[in-house]
């Protein structure tokens, strides 16, 4: 196998703050690498072509589709999944708001939805409901009808803005 056509690729990255080194199949998607190799089953594979957002993870501060990224592309990146964001309490207010507002039903879209919502919230300010809806348009939820999700994200945005002023 020549260097140009190798079917396995060595990657070195951090996942949820921990260093990971692996030799991955060249065609393996990031979501499969996380789920199958690292046992991080919080993000889910659903549409498998970048539409539904259930596989959304954070890569170098961006919300990224785990099904559209190859594991081989992750070399040198900093990756966060719902498990790491939970362990570090990074989005605890958002998670609590989702529970209190019942902004989830089956929960399959929820980890991706949370990562996408945090991407918006991390920009600061208090986005309008229309802006929240627009930002989450790449994350399908088939259970809730979205309103509770918008409510939860809005309440966290307001809560964080309030804390900033205090």
């Amino acid at each position: 196998m020549t260097e140009m056509f190798r079917d396995k690729v060595d990657v070195s990255l951090t996942v949820n703050g921990e260093p990971v080194e692996a030799r991955v199949p060249a065609g393996q998607h990031m979501i499969d690498f996380l789920r199958l190799e690292l046992g991080l089953t919080g993000a889910h594979a659903s549409c498998e072509h970048g539409v539904c957002g259930a596989c959304t993870i954070r890569v170098d501060d961006d919300a990224v589709r785990g099904c559209l990224m190859l594991a081989a592309q992750a070399d040198g990146t900093e990756v966060w999944t719902i498990e790491g964001l939970t362990d570090t309490n990074a989005i605890r207010d958002l998670q609590e708001a989702f529970v209190v507002r019942n902004a989830l039903q089956c929960g399959f879209c929820t980890p991706g939805m949370l990562v996408a919502a945090e991407e918006l919230l991390s920009k600061g300010g208090t986005p309008s409901r229309a802006e929240i809806r627009e930002h989450l348009s790449g994350n399908y939820c088939r259970c809730t009808g979205y309103e509770a999700i918008i409510d939860a994200v809005e309440s966290v945005a307001q809560g964080r803005a309030g804390k900033g002023k205090a």
Binding site: G42, T81, I82, L104, G107
Partner: peptide
């Protein structure tokens, strides 16, 4: 009253068949 199984789902600790 809160759903007892909601907390695990927002933490990515759900256990679906593919998990």
């Amino acid at each position: 009253v809160p759903r007892p199984n909601a907390a695990k789902l927002v933490q990515g600790r759900g256990r679906y068949v593919d998990d």
